[in-house]
């Protein structure tokens, strides 16, 4: 299992720290990215791709959001507006203050995947926790073999990170996209993201896969990859559960024996596949 990094954002893991919204932009109709910088001079957050922070909107509440890019002093968080807290965060203007606790959880084990082919598959907002991982792969392109990014969304309008997708292609990544519902301008494939696996040129035996999206998508993607010869010990998934403390003590995020906030959110598929086949566990 990937190891969590040492905390660098303050002393008590329960106390939020002040970060300022440096920039905010809308990615799609209901998705916003915030670029955060420490409000105090010495603030920093030493995160790794796959980890998350707890973001607090004053007086409204707190939600777990993956770090989708940036540096230790400029954090990108991409937020889908689905409830009161995410809507409050999405409405923040540059200069506003948010509370931040973190980083928490496990990171994508990219080091162990060096020298291998990669399949990075995302559904919807699931591209956000993978974005920083893909950027790292681009920076260290020679350390990996074939790299495919498979991305499925409900519609073309729901696709995140358009400029990044182009940049990743230019960096030599195979980027394949599909949508559930096409619009008049869409020229790509229509269907579930698992249907893109057959376009992948990598060798299953040499492949490590990183998956993030709805659970049903990750289950079927893992099955598809297994049929393509990828060992389940080389498939990694990022899970979502209700998280409130982020330290493994409030109990909300339990899935069988694991605390998703502390033991995950990134798990080896072989450790959680049985748990995810049980309905409503």
């Amino acid at each position: 299992m990937a190891a969590a990094t040492e905390r660098a954002c303050g002393t008590s893991p329960l106390l939020p720290h002040a970060w300022r919204v440096a920039e905010a932009w809308r990615e799609t109709g209901d998705v916003v990215t915030l670029a955060l910088e420490p409000a105090a001079g010495d603030g920093a957050c030493d995160w790794q791709p796959g980890q998350f922070n707890m973001l607090y909107a004053f007086g409204v509440g707190e939600v777990p959001i993956s770090v989708s890019g940036g540096t230790s002093r400029r954090l990108l968080h991409t937020i889908r507006e689905v409830g009161p807290v995410t809507r409050a965060l999405g409405a923040l203007a540059p200069g506003s203050i948010v509370g931040l606790r973190g980083p928490f959880g496990t990171a994508w084990p990219l080091r162990e995947a060096r020298g291998r082919d990669l399949v990075i598959a995302a559904g919807g907002i699931g591209l956000a926790p993978l974005r920083a991982l893909i950027d790292t792969v681009c920076r260290e392109r020679d350390a990996f073999g074939q790299v495919a990014v498979l991305y499925g969304t409900r519609s073309p309008a729901d696709q995140l990170y358009g400029p990044d997708l182009d940049r990743w292609r230019r960096a030599g990544l195979q980027v394949e996209m599909t949508v559930d519902h096409a619009d008049v301008d869409w020229r790509g494939p229509v269907g579930v993201v698992t249907s893109l696996v057959r376009r992948v040129r990598s060798d299953g035996q040499r492949t490590t896969a990183f998956l993030c999206g709805p659970e049903i998508m990750m289950r079927f993607m893992a099955r598809e990859l297994e049929q393509a010869g990828v060992a389940d010990s080389h498939v990694w998934v990022s899970l979502e559960r209700n998280m409130q403390c982020a330290t493994g003590h409030c109990g909300h995020c339990q899935l069988g024996p694991v605390f998703v906030c502390a033991d995950g959110p990134v798990f080896a598929w072989q450790h959680v596949r049985r748990l995810l086949t049980v309905r409503a566990l």
């Binding site: 106390l15 002040a18 007086g59 203050i97 509370g99």
Partner: peptide, 16 residues
């Protein structure tokens, strides 16, 4: 109570 935070425009400073 874990903390309280007085409203401020430029910071979030939790008081335990």
């Amino acid at each position: 109570q874990l903390w309280r935070i007085p409203r401020a425009t430029d910071t979030i400073r939790p008081l335990t």
